[in-house]
C-alpha cells in the first residue's frame, strides 16, 4: 500500500465506517461523502502531510453532522435480540457479539476505540483527528474498554454454563 495513493486508503475507510455506523449502506455513503468533500477541499491538503489523518478528520466531521441532523438510531435491547436469534457457529457468534456491543457504546467512545485499536493511530493523532485534547482521548478510551467489557460479560456467561440456558 502506498500512503500517498487515495485509493489505497479507501478500503480501511470503508471498514472503519462500517464499524462506526453499523450499516453497510450508511458506511459506503459516509465514505462517498468524505471523498466528495475531500474533492471540494483538496486545496487544503498539503503535499507531504498526513493524507490518512486528513481523510479521517473529514469523515469524522461528516459523521458528527449526520448524527446531529438524524434522529437517534433505533436500538434493540441486546439481550432480547440475542435470545431471538438462531445460534450461529461459535466464531461468528463471537464476532457478532462484539460488533453489537461496539454499537452500543456512546459514539464518542466508539470513535476513539476504533481509531486507536483498529486503525493503530497514535493517541496524539487520534486527538488531532477528533479535535479533542489527548487527555480526553485517554479517558474515552478507558471508558470504552470498561464499557465494552461490561457489555460482553453477560454474553460470555452462557457459554460457560450452557446447560442452565438450554434447559430453561
Amino acid at each position: 500500500m502506498d500512503p500517498h495513493r487515495i485509493i489505497d486508503h479507501v478500503p480501511a475507510l470503508r471498514r472503519y465506517a462500517r464499524l462506526l455506523t453499523g450499516d453497510a449502506w450508511a458506511a459506503d455513503d459516509l465514505v462517498q461523502d468524505t471523498l466528495e468533500r475531500a474533492c471540494r477541499k483538496w486545496l487544503l491538503w498539503r503535499s507531504g502531510s498526513n493524507l490518512r489523518a486528513w481523510l479521517f478528520t473529514l469523515m469524522h466531521h461528516l459523521y458528527l453532522n449526520q448524527r446531529r441532523g438524524a434522529p437517534p438510531l433505533q436500538t434493540v435491547d441486546i439481550d432480547t435480540l440475542h435470545e431471538g436469534l438462531p445460534a450461529p457457529a461459535q466464531d461468528t457468534d463471537g464476532a457478532l457479539d462484539i460488533e453489537r456491543c461496539l454499537l452500543r457504546l456512546p459514539a464518542e467512545q466508539r470513535v476513539v476505540l476504533l481509531l486507536v485499536a483498529l486503525e493503530d493511530m497514535a493517541y496524539a493523532d487520534a486527538a488531532r483527528v477528533l479535535q479533542i485534547p489527548v487527555g480526553t482521548v485517554m479517558s474515552r478510551l478507558s471508558r470504552a474498554r470498561a464499557r465494552l467489557r461490561e457489555l460482553m460479560e453477560p454474553m460470555q456467561a452462557p457459554a460457560q454454563h450452557p446447560a442452565l440456558r438450554r434447559l430453561k
Binding site: 479507501v10 471498514r15 462517498q32 466528495e36 474533492c39 464476532a95 461496539l102
Partner: peptide
C-alpha cells in the same frame, strides 16, 4: 476481536462510485 471484524473488506473490490471519486 475488533481487528477481526469485517477484515475481509480490506480485500474486497471497491464499489464503482467510490473508485471513481477516489480517482
Amino acid at each position: 476481536s475488533l481487528r477481526g471484524l469485517h477484515a475481509g473488506m480490506e480485500e474486497e473490490p471497491l464499489p464503482e462510485p467510490l473508485r471513481t471519486t477516489a480517482t
